[in-house]
Design a protein around this nucleic acid. Structure first.
Length: 261
DNA sequence: AAAGAAGTCAACCGCTAGGCG
DNA sequence: GCGCCTAGCGGTTGACTTCTT
Protein backbone atom coordinates (compact mmCIF):
# COMPACT_ATOMS: atom_id res chain seq x y z
CA UNK A 1 0.00 0.00 0.00
CA UNK A 2 1.22 3.43 -0.90
CA UNK A 3 0.57 6.05 1.67
CA UNK A 4 -1.56 8.90 0.34
CA UNK A 5 0.48 12.07 0.04
CA UNK A 6 -0.28 14.50 2.83
CA UNK A 7 -1.20 17.31 0.45
CA UNK A 8 -3.69 15.19 -1.44
CA UNK A 9 -5.62 14.02 1.53
CA UNK A 10 -5.90 17.55 2.87
CA UNK A 11 -6.84 18.98 -0.51
CA UNK A 12 -3.81 21.20 -0.42
CA UNK A 13 -1.99 22.73 -3.32
CA UNK A 14 0.94 21.02 -5.00
CA UNK A 15 3.39 22.03 -7.67
CA UNK A 16 5.39 25.17 -8.33
CA UNK A 17 5.15 28.03 -5.91
CA UNK A 18 3.78 31.37 -7.04
CA UNK A 19 5.49 34.68 -6.14
CA UNK A 20 2.47 35.49 -3.94
CA UNK A 21 2.88 32.30 -1.96
CA UNK A 22 6.58 33.02 -1.59
CA UNK A 23 5.82 36.48 -0.24
CA UNK A 24 3.35 35.14 2.28
CA UNK A 25 5.76 32.46 3.46
CA UNK A 26 8.69 34.84 3.76
CA UNK A 27 6.79 37.48 5.67
CA UNK A 28 5.25 34.92 8.02
CA UNK A 29 8.61 33.35 8.82
CA UNK A 30 10.20 36.76 9.29
CA UNK A 31 7.46 37.65 11.79
CA UNK A 32 6.93 34.38 13.61
CA UNK A 33 9.76 32.06 12.68
CA UNK A 34 9.23 28.42 11.79
CA UNK A 35 9.06 26.53 15.04
CA UNK A 36 6.28 24.28 13.77
CA UNK A 37 6.17 23.59 10.07
CA UNK A 38 2.97 21.61 10.26
CA UNK A 39 1.10 24.48 11.82
CA UNK A 40 2.79 27.18 9.77
CA UNK A 41 0.78 27.05 6.53
CA UNK A 42 -2.49 27.26 8.40
CA UNK A 43 -1.25 30.20 10.45
CA UNK A 44 0.14 31.92 7.36
CA UNK A 45 -2.96 31.25 5.29
CA UNK A 46 -1.21 29.07 2.75
CA UNK A 47 -2.89 26.14 1.03
CA UNK A 48 0.27 24.08 1.31
CA UNK A 49 1.40 21.33 3.60
CA UNK A 50 4.11 22.05 6.15
CA UNK A 51 6.52 19.83 4.37
CA UNK A 52 6.16 21.77 1.15
CA UNK A 53 6.64 25.07 3.02
CA UNK A 54 9.76 23.77 4.72
CA UNK A 55 11.25 22.61 1.45
CA UNK A 56 10.45 25.88 -0.26
CA UNK A 57 12.03 27.88 2.53
CA UNK A 58 15.11 25.72 2.92
CA UNK A 59 15.82 25.23 -0.75
CA UNK A 60 14.80 28.57 -2.18
CA UNK A 61 13.64 31.35 0.07
CA UNK A 62 16.15 31.34 2.91
CA UNK A 63 17.97 34.69 2.95
CA UNK A 64 21.42 33.14 3.24
CA UNK A 65 21.01 31.03 0.15
CA UNK A 66 23.60 31.45 -2.56
CA UNK A 67 22.11 31.31 -6.03
CA UNK A 68 23.89 30.83 -9.31
CA UNK A 69 26.46 28.50 -10.78
CA UNK A 70 28.83 26.50 -8.67
CA UNK A 71 32.44 27.59 -8.78
CA UNK A 72 35.27 25.24 -9.67
CA UNK A 73 36.29 25.25 -6.01
CA UNK A 74 32.81 24.33 -4.88
CA UNK A 75 32.64 21.51 -7.41
CA UNK A 76 35.99 20.17 -6.32
CA UNK A 77 34.85 20.34 -2.70
CA UNK A 78 31.69 18.42 -3.49
CA UNK A 79 33.62 15.74 -5.33
CA UNK A 80 36.06 15.34 -2.48
CA UNK A 81 33.34 15.31 0.17
CA UNK A 82 31.30 12.87 -1.83
CA UNK A 83 34.30 10.58 -1.97
CA UNK A 84 34.49 10.72 1.81
CA UNK A 85 30.80 10.85 2.75
CA UNK A 86 28.92 9.25 -0.12
CA UNK A 87 25.37 10.43 -0.81
CA UNK A 88 25.06 12.32 2.44
CA UNK A 89 23.93 15.48 0.77
CA UNK A 90 23.04 17.37 3.90
CA UNK A 91 26.46 16.68 5.36
CA UNK A 92 28.07 17.90 2.16
CA UNK A 93 25.81 20.96 2.10
CA UNK A 94 26.88 21.78 5.64
CA UNK A 95 30.40 22.32 4.34
CA UNK A 96 29.24 24.64 1.60
CA UNK A 97 27.69 27.78 3.05
CA UNK A 98 24.67 28.99 1.12
CA UNK A 99 24.20 25.75 -0.79
CA UNK A 100 21.37 23.33 -0.13
CA UNK A 101 21.45 19.57 -0.11
CA UNK A 102 18.91 19.55 -2.92
CA UNK A 103 21.02 21.84 -5.06
CA UNK A 104 24.15 19.81 -4.43
CA UNK A 105 22.32 16.62 -5.19
CA UNK A 106 21.11 18.07 -8.49
CA UNK A 107 24.53 19.36 -9.44
CA UNK A 108 26.01 16.01 -8.61
CA UNK A 109 23.60 14.11 -10.81
CA UNK A 110 23.68 16.58 -13.67
CA UNK A 111 27.33 17.70 -13.81
CA UNK A 112 29.71 16.19 -11.36
CA UNK A 113 28.96 12.53 -11.87
CA UNK A 114 29.73 12.97 -15.56
CA UNK A 115 32.77 15.08 -14.84
CA UNK A 116 34.12 12.52 -12.43
CA UNK A 117 33.45 9.68 -14.83
CA UNK A 118 35.33 11.47 -17.58
CA UNK A 119 38.20 12.05 -15.21
CA UNK A 120 38.27 8.40 -14.19
CA UNK A 121 37.96 7.24 -17.76
CA UNK A 122 40.86 9.36 -18.82
CA UNK A 123 42.89 7.92 -15.98
CA UNK A 124 41.92 4.32 -16.52
CA UNK A 125 41.32 4.35 -20.17
CA UNK A 126 42.71 1.79 -22.47
CA UNK A 127 43.78 3.20 -25.76
CA UNK A 128 42.84 1.63 -29.04
CA UNK A 129 44.40 2.63 -32.32
CA UNK A 130 42.68 1.31 -35.38
CA UNK A 131 44.88 0.88 -38.39
CA UNK A 132 45.04 -0.52 -41.87
CA UNK A 133 43.59 -3.89 -42.56
CA UNK A 134 46.09 -5.78 -44.66
CA UNK A 135 43.67 -7.04 -47.24
CA UNK A 136 42.46 -3.52 -47.89
CA UNK A 137 45.89 -2.15 -48.48
CA UNK A 138 48.34 -2.16 -51.25
CA UNK A 139 50.94 -1.94 -48.50
CA UNK A 140 49.49 -4.82 -46.62
CA UNK A 141 52.54 -6.93 -46.92
CA UNK A 142 55.51 -4.70 -47.38
CA UNK A 143 57.75 -7.51 -48.41
CA UNK A 144 55.59 -8.06 -51.47
CA UNK A 145 54.46 -4.52 -52.04
CA UNK A 146 55.89 -1.73 -54.09
CA UNK A 147 55.33 0.31 -50.95
CA UNK A 148 57.38 -2.10 -48.97
CA UNK A 149 59.25 0.69 -47.28
CA UNK A 150 56.06 1.79 -45.60
CA UNK A 151 55.43 -0.01 -42.39
CA UNK A 152 51.90 -0.48 -41.27
CA UNK A 153 51.01 1.00 -37.93
CA UNK A 154 50.56 -1.02 -34.84
CA UNK A 155 47.01 -2.15 -35.00
CA UNK A 156 45.45 -1.76 -31.68
CA UNK A 157 47.26 -1.14 -28.52
CA UNK A 158 46.15 -0.96 -24.99
CA UNK A 159 47.77 1.47 -22.70
CA UNK A 160 46.33 1.48 -19.19
CA UNK A 161 46.67 4.74 -17.40
CA UNK A 162 47.06 6.86 -20.48
CA UNK A 163 44.82 9.82 -20.96
CA UNK A 164 42.78 10.26 -24.09
CA UNK A 165 43.86 13.84 -24.22
CA UNK A 166 47.50 13.01 -23.81
CA UNK A 167 47.89 9.56 -25.14
CA UNK A 168 51.57 9.71 -25.85
CA UNK A 169 52.54 6.24 -24.82
CA UNK A 170 55.52 5.58 -22.71
CA UNK A 171 57.87 2.94 -23.83
CA UNK A 172 56.93 0.73 -20.91
CA UNK A 173 53.25 1.06 -21.69
CA UNK A 174 53.86 0.09 -25.22
CA UNK A 175 56.06 -2.80 -24.32
CA UNK A 176 53.10 -4.70 -22.98
CA UNK A 177 50.71 -3.75 -25.70
CA UNK A 178 48.97 -5.84 -28.28
CA UNK A 179 47.61 -4.76 -31.58
CA UNK A 180 45.23 -5.77 -34.28
CA UNK A 181 44.46 -4.41 -37.68
CA UNK A 182 41.47 -2.25 -38.36
CA UNK A 183 40.29 0.33 -40.87
CA UNK A 184 41.62 1.04 -44.30
CA UNK A 185 44.58 3.36 -44.15
CA UNK A 186 44.13 4.86 -47.54
CA UNK A 187 40.57 5.84 -46.87
CA UNK A 188 40.24 6.23 -43.15
CA UNK A 189 41.96 8.41 -40.65
CA UNK A 190 43.63 6.43 -37.94
CA UNK A 191 41.31 6.25 -35.02
CA UNK A 192 42.02 6.16 -31.32
CA UNK A 193 39.14 4.87 -29.28
CA UNK A 194 38.87 5.63 -25.63
CA UNK A 195 36.98 3.57 -23.10
CA UNK A 196 34.04 5.95 -23.06
CA UNK A 197 33.65 5.49 -26.79
CA UNK A 198 34.97 8.91 -27.63
CA UNK A 199 37.32 8.88 -30.53
CA UNK A 200 40.31 10.81 -31.68
CA UNK A 201 41.24 10.72 -35.33
CA UNK A 202 44.81 10.78 -36.43
CA UNK A 203 45.62 12.08 -39.88
CA UNK A 204 45.66 9.52 -42.63
CA UNK A 205 48.95 7.69 -42.45
CA UNK A 206 50.04 7.21 -46.00
CA UNK A 207 53.26 6.98 -47.91
CA UNK A 208 53.76 10.72 -47.75
CA UNK A 209 53.59 10.69 -44.02
CA UNK A 210 56.33 8.17 -43.68
CA UNK A 211 58.61 9.69 -46.26
CA UNK A 212 58.10 13.21 -44.96
CA UNK A 213 58.78 12.02 -41.50
CA UNK A 214 62.38 11.24 -42.32
CA UNK A 215 62.15 8.34 -40.01
CA UNK A 216 63.08 5.42 -41.99
CA UNK A 217 66.49 3.97 -41.81
CA UNK A 218 67.10 0.68 -43.53
CA UNK A 219 67.42 -1.49 -40.44
CA UNK A 220 64.25 -0.27 -38.78
CA UNK A 221 62.50 -0.62 -42.10
CA UNK A 222 63.62 -4.16 -42.35
CA UNK A 223 62.32 -4.88 -38.91
CA UNK A 224 59.05 -3.18 -39.71
CA UNK A 225 58.71 -5.20 -42.85
CA UNK A 226 59.46 -8.38 -41.00
CA UNK A 227 56.91 -7.60 -38.37
CA UNK A 228 54.23 -6.77 -40.86
CA UNK A 229 55.02 -9.86 -42.86
CA UNK A 230 55.03 -11.98 -39.73
CA UNK A 231 51.72 -10.60 -38.62
CA UNK A 232 50.13 -11.14 -41.97
CA UNK A 233 47.82 -8.31 -40.97
CA UNK A 234 44.87 -10.56 -41.29
CA UNK A 235 42.83 -8.72 -38.71
CA UNK A 236 43.64 -11.02 -35.85
CA UNK A 237 44.98 -9.81 -32.58
CA UNK A 238 48.72 -9.93 -32.50
CA UNK A 239 50.98 -9.59 -29.54
CA UNK A 240 54.28 -8.00 -30.31
CA UNK A 241 55.33 -7.12 -26.81
CA UNK A 242 58.63 -5.30 -26.84
CA UNK A 243 58.40 -4.58 -30.51
CA UNK A 244 55.93 -1.85 -29.65
CA UNK A 245 58.95 0.18 -28.67
CA UNK A 246 59.90 0.10 -32.28
CA UNK A 247 56.66 1.72 -33.34
CA UNK A 248 56.99 4.29 -30.68
CA UNK A 249 60.46 5.10 -31.85
CA UNK A 250 59.17 5.55 -35.35
CA UNK A 251 56.59 8.02 -34.15
CA UNK A 252 59.13 9.89 -32.10
CA UNK A 253 61.52 10.05 -35.00
CA UNK A 254 58.73 11.43 -37.09
CA UNK A 255 58.87 14.33 -34.71
CA UNK A 256 55.19 14.91 -35.17
CA UNK A 257 53.89 12.86 -32.33
CA UNK A 258 52.90 15.87 -30.28
CA UNK A 259 50.84 17.22 -33.12
CA UNK A 260 49.38 13.87 -33.94
CA UNK A 261 48.28 13.22 -30.42
C1' DA B 1 11.17 25.89 -38.54
C1' DA B 2 9.72 21.86 -36.21
C1' DA B 3 10.18 17.73 -33.65
C1' DG B 4 12.50 14.87 -30.65
C1' DA B 5 16.27 14.18 -27.33
C1' DA B 6 18.83 15.55 -23.58
C1' DG B 7 19.69 18.42 -19.69
C1' DT B 8 18.25 21.02 -15.66
C1' DC B 9 16.18 21.85 -11.37
C1' DA B 10 12.23 22.69 -8.20
C1' DA B 11 9.23 19.98 -5.87
C1' DC B 12 7.38 15.75 -4.26
C1' DC B 13 7.42 11.06 -2.04
C1' DG B 14 8.51 7.83 1.30
C1' DC B 15 11.48 6.41 4.86
C1' DT B 16 13.80 7.09 9.27
C1' DA B 17 15.45 9.09 13.58
C1' DG B 18 14.40 11.46 17.52
C1' DG B 19 11.39 13.75 20.82
C1' DC B 20 7.52 13.39 23.70
C1' DG B 21 3.57 11.63 26.32
C1' DG C 1 8.74 -0.04 25.92
C1' DC C 2 5.28 1.65 22.74
C1' DG C 3 2.97 4.61 19.62
C1' DC C 4 2.39 9.00 17.58
C1' DC C 5 4.14 13.16 15.55
C1' DT C 6 7.45 15.97 13.24
C1' DA C 7 11.72 17.33 10.98
C1' DG C 8 15.07 15.94 8.06
C1' DC C 9 17.06 13.22 4.51
C1' DG C 10 17.88 10.95 0.00
C1' DG C 11 15.71 9.24 -4.16
C1' DT C 12 12.70 10.26 -7.81
C1' DT C 13 9.60 12.77 -10.81
C1' DG C 14 8.05 15.82 -14.16
C1' DA C 15 7.76 20.46 -16.11
C1' DC C 16 10.47 23.43 -18.43
C1' DT C 17 14.51 24.76 -21.23
C1' DT C 18 18.13 24.02 -24.39
C1' DC C 19 20.31 21.44 -27.86
C1' DT C 20 20.45 18.57 -31.91
C1' DT C 21 18.84 16.70 -36.09
Amino acid sequence: MVRAPCCEKMGLKKGPWTPEEDKILISHIQKYGHSNWRALPKQAGLLRCGKSCRLRWINYLRPDIKRGNFTEEEEETIIKLHEMLGNRWSAIAAKLPGRTDNEIKNVWHTHLKKKLKQKQDSNNQQLYVTVPKCEDLSISNPSESENSNIPALPGQYESPGQSAMSPQPSSSDLSTATYTSGATAETDDVKVETMDSSEIYFPVIDQDFWSEAELIDSSSMELASDMVAASGFNGNCLSIDDDMDFWYDLFVKAGDIEELL
